[in-house]
Design a binder for these strands. Structure first.
Lengths: 341, 341
DNA sequence: TTGTATGCGTTATCAC
DNA sequence: GTGATAACGCATACAA
């Protein structure tokens, strides 16, 4: 059905070589030839077959973005930026949901899957360091890790300074005079890196202020979801004395926690101040608007794409760590004045 | 580097044909052969090359999901369900953002792009009927349209009854006693189908109740975003007398509208009741929780995947329309009692 | 500058 | 049931 390079060549009375040259923008083609070939291409409605091209060149032009769940706002906002940044350097992005499945992550990392489709992979992992250490550079395709700070230096990663971000959030709660500061998101069942780092920042900040930490004010959360935040906050409010502030390890947890505070007949921020991490758009329109630590997803996306593109071109590049900036954004949920979104 | 079918064949002292048979699960292979081949596969760490397979079979196992913006919750929640449903029948999903770009939509529909990578396409279009009518069945690959109700019958689509959904939402506002019912989302610059249909449902419901419609209470919204909802609602509240209810054509618009009502010093639902469409999770945790019309995204995803899979297998299938159910969900923003999320 | 021929890794068509 | 071999559509080494 579809026209091939050969069809075009016959139609234009030239060789496939010439057609190929024209199609791939080769320099040294006479303008007459070029015109003739281009006309034939138009007449036949020829489109290059990317699969055949890939088999030949070994490049698919496809990148995989691996996230736990695409419908978590932080990841969908990151995906938007990654897709945009990738398009600018000629890559298309496939999104892979691991759904909190460790085996799926391992499969992806090890290339047990049908991964030969991708030129490279952007990986926002649940994975623990222990799991990653079981993966060797040779097993995996070009890879950029997203979000963690401490990995062994074997892989590129665009990191967030989770410890500092958590400390900044906690310091803010301390600065507005709160003394019983709870945390939601610490220590899920498994030893994920992100919650460990955020707990470290939270703990350090409290200790520096001589305020704790008090283990009874720390709650786990499996999925960083609104439901988890709601449940954890409800349980925290039953403590006595109850906390006067909650630091949530994600904005989504914070949205759930805020709703739990209201359902308990209390006010945010008067009775309980709340702060999250991520700066998802939802928090800017919530009532009260959500104080948070902004992670620069456009920066993360751009750096990650630049890095993966470079590594695909030269796989021998030494691994590199880029730390993305973060920024404390006080809003109404910690007593800041209302600002029109 | 990577082992090929031939490497395995040599290693196991059989022909490539036999190895291929084993790999693709062909029936008639003696168990001895199968064992021998499988051992060789393990020893060499062989993985089939999906690109080569694709070149031969013409199937990539890839589906494209085309949406205006992946970070709009409705679309990211839909994407989650589509990815899940696709995985169950052996397809992977690529997400394409059109970013409200009509030309990009046209390119995708016409296959001007590098579309030979996909076996089929799920398309949640901005496109108007006029634009779609410029695309012929032969130009495009297997295609399932998502979300609209009225298309000419040339393409498969999984539709929402937008007219009825909008009427249900409006009827609900009427039923709780509101009489000045505004609308946000009607008639953006261009003649998109969804807003036209929702406006029709809204108008019909008002007329049935003898309440209007009043043109000054209808506002446009370009992107169905929180910002658009905020701006439109702010402008509506300046009307005099001001509306006592707002029907928003998406939940995201409604979230922005609610914030605007609060910033104007008014209460939801006492002063202004608000209802949206989509049933995104954000609305269930918002304060007040958002009344909405739920669209059954898992249903939409499953039906769309089933349909595209069938059409890929048999492109001559007649086009079919499936209408997804919808359900009115009264919550606090229209005066319903609070329910723990 | 352009033409010819080979191979990328797989599946499928023939024989045996 | 298994083996040899021809495509699939393209890019490129080599020749002209």
């Amino acid at each position: 059905m579809a026209a091939t390079l050969r069809d075009v060549a016959e139609h234009a009375n030239v060789s496939v070589r010439t057609v190929s040259n024209v199609v791939s923008g080769y320099e040294h083609v006479s303008s007459k030839m070029r015109a003739r070939v281009e006309q034939a291409i138009d007449e036949l409605g020829y489109r290059p077959n990317p699969v055949a091209r890939t088999l030949r060149t070994g490049r698919t032009g496809l990148l995989a973005l691996v996230v736990p769940e695409i419908d978590v706002p932080y990841f969908s906002e990151l995906a938007r930026d990654v897709i945009t940044a990738a398009a600018e350097v000629g890559y298309q992005v496939m999104i892979d949901q691991t759904g909190h499945d460790h085996e799926r992550e391992q499969d992806l990392l090890r290339g047990t899957d049908r991964n030969m489709l991708f030129d490279g992979m952007l990986f926002a992992p649940l994975a623990t360091e222990a799991e990653l250490s079981g993966v060797t550079e040779s097993q995996t395709m070009p890879l950029v890790l997203l979000g963690e700070h401490t990995f062994d230096g074997r892989f590129d990663h665009v990191a967030i300074d989770n410890v500092q971000a958590a400390a900044d959030a906690t310091d803010h709660l301390i600065a507005i005079g709160r003394t019983r500061i709870a945390a939601i998101g610490a220590q899920p069942k498994e030893h994920y890196t992100t919650p460990l780092q955020r707990t470290e920042g939270y703990t350090t900040a409290l200790e520096r202020a001589g305020l704790g930490p008090e283990p009874s004010l720390i709650r786990a959360a499996d999925h960083y979801s609104r439901a988890d935040g709601y449940a954890a906050a409800s349980s925290l409010l039953a403590e006595s004395p109850r906390p006067d502030a909650i630091f949530c390890y994600s904005d989504l947890l914070a949205m759930g926690a805020a709703r739990a505070v209201f359902d308990a007949g209390l006010q945010v921020p008067d009775d309980v101040a709340i702060i999250g991490i991520d700066d998802i758009e939802e928090g800017r329109y919530a009532r009260p608007s959500l104080s948070t630590v902004s992670l620069d997803t456009p920066f993360i996306a751009e750096q990650a794409i630049a890095r993966i593109a470079a590594r695909i071109d030269d796989p021998t590049l030494p691994a590199q760590e880029i730390v993305a900036p973060h920024l404390l954004l006080p809003r109404e949920s910690t007593g800041a004045a209302s600002v029109t979104p």
